[in-house]
């Protein structure tokens, strides 16, 4: 029995990392958008849900899953660009609560529109044929699709890291998150940078929704709980920190997964308990800068 439980724990650890990968995809966008624009994007869960529905729709008209992986983030990201340009941009300079309330209201509108178009009940989404089944990962058989989700997340993270560390735009983003005025006087049109960062964050959230669809199905309300969890991740990791979002995302995934192994009814409570403990010990989170919100 001892060997069996060790294997079970190992598998559950992997399940936690797969779940954490989805959190990471939401949290890096939230964190990027907050770090750069000081916008707390309450519509981020709605963009996640839109990703799942756009994917569902594309699959239903016969587009293959691999194309969806590219098309969904582009479509959702494009929608994010439109939202920043038309709704959020007029609110810059008016304090943190204006865009927060706007995105909060927007999330309700998006959810309601999806209910009108797709109906209130949810849909299951089939795992793509090529990604069905399970593979032996040493501690037992693990669903291939979940490994795939982890792999895609890792690719996105590596790509984002290279983009931020190695390119001119990355340098602008890293500097602009610290001091937007300096970047402006060095000739950068900061409005355009903010636009792109918002679109990028939303696009990655949309990809997260698409990847989560086969795991949990799609319903119009799917963005709500995961947004709350993604906020926990960004707070634990430190608002505005990408490294924090990644580590905290995986940690929260593992905490949920492990708690559900031992005390399933406590799983969702555990992450808020984790947040409380982290905030008591380190109010700015793992990698946050103290005083960022003030």
């Amino acid at each position: 029995m001892a060997g069996l439980s060790l294997e079970l724990i190992g598998l559950q650890l992997f399940a936690g990392l797969a779940l954490g990968s989805v959190y990471v995809l939401l949290a890096i966008g939230l964190s990027l958008i907050f770090g750069m624009l000081t916008v707390v994007n309450f519509a981020h869960g709605a963009f996640f849900m839109l990703g799942a529905y756009v994917g569902l729709w594309l699959l239903s008209i016969g587009v293959n899953f691999w194309i969806c992986l590219v098309a969904v983030p582009l479509i959702v990201g494009g929608f994010g660009l439109a939202v920043e340009r038309t709704l959020i941009r007029p609110l810059y300079g008016r304090g943190i609560d204006y865009p927060l309330l706007l995105t909060f209201g927007l999330s309700y509108i998006i959810v309601e529109l999806v209910r009108i178009v797709f109906g209130k009940s949810g849909y299951p989404v089939a795992t793509p044929d090529a990604l069905q089944g399970a593979v032996d990962i040493g501690v037992g058989y693990f669903p291939l699709y979940r490994l795939f989700v982890m792999g895609v997340t890792a690719l996105i993270l590596v790509g984002l890291w290279l983009f931020l560390e190695r390119t001119r735009y990355g340098l602008i983003i890293r500097a602009g998150a610290r001091d937007a005025q300096i970047v402006r006087v060095l000739g950068v049109n900061i409005s355009r940078v903010w636009l792109m960062v918002f679109g990028l964050g939303c696009g990655i959230a949309g990809l997260g929704g698409l990847l989560a669809a086969p795991l949990q199905g799609v319903i119009p309300e799917m963005g709500g709980p995961i947004l709350a969890e993604a906020f926990v991740v960004t707070v634990v990791g430190g608002m505005g920190s990408l490294m924090g979002a990644v580590l905290a995302g995986l940690l929260v995934g593992v905490v949920v997964s492990m708690t559900s192994l031992f005390a399933p009814e406590m799983a969702k409570v555990a992450i808020f308990a984790l947040m409380a403990v982290v905030l008591l010990i380190r109010p700015q989170g793992f990698f946050g800068r103290a005083g960022l919100m003030s």
């Binding site: 602008i172 006087v185 060095l186």
Partner: peptide
């Protein structure tokens, strides 16, 4: 070009990155 009061260099970046920042646009 404008050099503001209180330096305002981006402290998280290296010296080279700060110089590159002067050329991004």
């Amino acid at each position: 070009a404008y050099v503001p009061e209180e330096r305002r260099i981006v402290t998280g970046l290296t010296v080279r990155e700060n110089l590159r920042l002067g050329l991004v646009s």
